[in-house]
Design a protein around this nucleic acid. Structure first.
Lengths: 337, 337
DNA sequence: TTGTATGCGTTATCAT
DNA sequence: ATGATAACGCATACAA
């Protein structure tokens, strides 16, 4: 059996309450008593029982993280950030994977809410109502989605999309295709409307929306022929995985990148520099993103009365690599002729 | 405040113990009573308090998973498998990232051991003594490392390496380089000795061990020039990330793959089909690997007296892609001349 | 089959 | 400053 506070108390010659205080509230106990208790606790290898503590305090010392897909490098990076920061703050992290399924996501959130002190929802796909409802029960921070006035770590999609569009326009591209992600994704909606507003600022740009695709490599493969058929000289994908799929099938079709078509992704996941051609991408420091969410959540957990309406916006940066280049004169001339 | 068993009992007109039984031991309560309790519990949104339950049963309903690096796609896949299977078995998963640091790994394991019902250590880097010591306290399953007679989900490295070597030899390669991973990695040791024994079976094969490198893309970049200098016509890397790094720098150096040098990786992570050239790799179903470990752990948790000496070996399969090809006649002739 | 009573290890309240 | 004691919500041995 594990050593309990009672054992420590007996050995140290004090009461259980004193043991408890010596550890939790150092200044409410005499320095020498405290020293003695700490020493014997240390010596006996005493570890407070989290379950018992949780039962009385209502705290678990655990935060929950729900992501759509652990195998997606985007979320893997976020998870890493969340985990490391949480640990530094004295919290363990329970992680769950919703498999991109909104209903699982909601169920997970509800299950977890009784088991953790706070919840980080990363790019939740579910309807706003459900999310807000769960947030009533438990401190919650969102990543990559705005939802009511829940605290959020988000990305300035407009800025990111603008960077990409300006880049492509500077290279001479005028007909630009958009390969979208899940319709349930907040980021997707954001990016599409950003795209439209940027396009509106530049009347010479023609935007071709090719619709929604699953945010995996397979989605990009499915979209590639549409891109070719669209006559666009450049394509912007919802995320890098989709862009990878595009690169793959375009190569198979004998379409040169960036010679015939330029490809730009979003997220700048680690793998983006390794494809051939390497992928131009707009991205953010994902690990930082995870860390920031934990900082906000911990604050919220410690003081639930704090005003939760805090939005932490991170900015994109454009990483130009080999998959984007100047439009071919010939094609450009043909297109405008 | 949350709804407790007491509340449910009051509403359903029964005692707390009946509520408890109705949920945990359905056959120890009259069918109609059970139905009534279940219905009201459902209606009131009752969720048993895990902390309270844990306090009396000694169980937390949580299993811990420690991986060297969450951003490594290999471990991301394993994590996904562990999470989904654990959830299906009614367990939550606390995940932690040791950052490839053996001392952090040990500390994490010790911390967690008081908080979870069982532990999955994925490819632990720490010394055997430490691992075995922690395993004394808590049910533990290892992935990708054998350690004493702790239950393990491992891969038959000899078989995998043999597949790769036979493949390369059939393509005419005789001088083959090895780019190793962390010296602290059990798999690395296993693979190297497998390599040596397979080489011993084929006296015409010349093995060039280029040493150990960090198991990231950067490690492969660091190793690439050594590969070129080695005069090998084929190189086998400890994992796919290293192989990606090799591909990247070889391309920069103008070395054709597989024309001049064939490259083969290990793990077959999802990204391997997307590089250019796509990567030939020996791999296992990683998600399955994670699932299997949970199955073993859950069994162990449910019946700690069960013989723990269970080894679950998964087999490699060779996925041949574009990065491996026949050795060039000219070079081959030169080499053997 | 069901209810009553006890205890899990800790923190918090109240005395001292 | 410290100790005794009452919860916290649940499971379980025992009584009915």
């Amino acid at each position: 059996m594990a050593v309990t506070a009672r054992d420590v108390a007996r050995v140290a010659g004090v009461s259980v309450s004193t043991v408890s205080r010596a550890l939790a509230k150092p200044d409410e106990v005499a320095p020498e008593t405290r020293a003695k208790v700490l020493a014997t606790a240390q010596g006996m290898g005493y570890r407070p029982n989290q379950a018992a503590r949780g039962l009385v305090t209502g705290r678990t010392g655990i935060i929950g993280l729900i992501v759509p897909d652990l195998e997606n490098p985007f979320f893997a990076s976020v998870t890493k950030g969340v985990q490391s920061r949480a640990r530094a703050a004295g919290f363990a992290v329970i992680v769950a994977d919703s498999d991109e399924d909104p209903s699982q996501e909601a169920e997970l959130a509800r299950d977890m809410s009784k088991q953790v002190d706070g919840l980080v929802l990363c790019a939740p796909r579910g309807p706003e109502g459900v999310i807000v409802e769960v947030a009533l029960d438990i401190p919650m921070v969102l990543i990559n989605r705005r939802c009511g006035d829940l605290p959020t770590v988000a990305i300035d999609n407009v800025e990111g999309i603008r960077l990409a569009m300006v880049h492509l326009r500077a290279l001479g591209h005028r007909r630009i295709a958009w390969v979208g992600g899940p319709v349930t994704s907040w980021s997707n909606t954001e990016r599409l409307s950003a795209l439209e507003s940027v396009a509106a600022e530049h009347p010479d740009i023609e935007l071709v929306n090719l619709g929604s695709f699953p945010p995996y490599v397979s989605g990009g493969i499915a979209a590639a022929d549409l891109v070719i058929a669209s006559g666009a000289t450049a394509v912007l994908a919802y995320n890098d995985l989709l862009a990878f799929g595009l690169l793959d099938l375009l190569r198979q079709r004998g379409v040169a990148v960036p010679g015939d078509i330029s490809v730009v992704g979003v997220d700048n996941i680690p793998m983006s520099s390794l494809t051939s051609p390497s992928l131009t991408s707009v991205g953010i420091p994902l690990v930082t993103c995870g860390r920031a969410s934990v900082d906000m959540l911990v604050q919220l957990v410690r003081d639930p009365s704090a005003v939760p309406a805090h939005h932490h916006d991170l900015s994109f940066r454009l990483v130009v690599r080999d998959s984007s280049g100047p439009v071919r004169r010939v094609l450009a001339d043909l297109a405008t002729a």
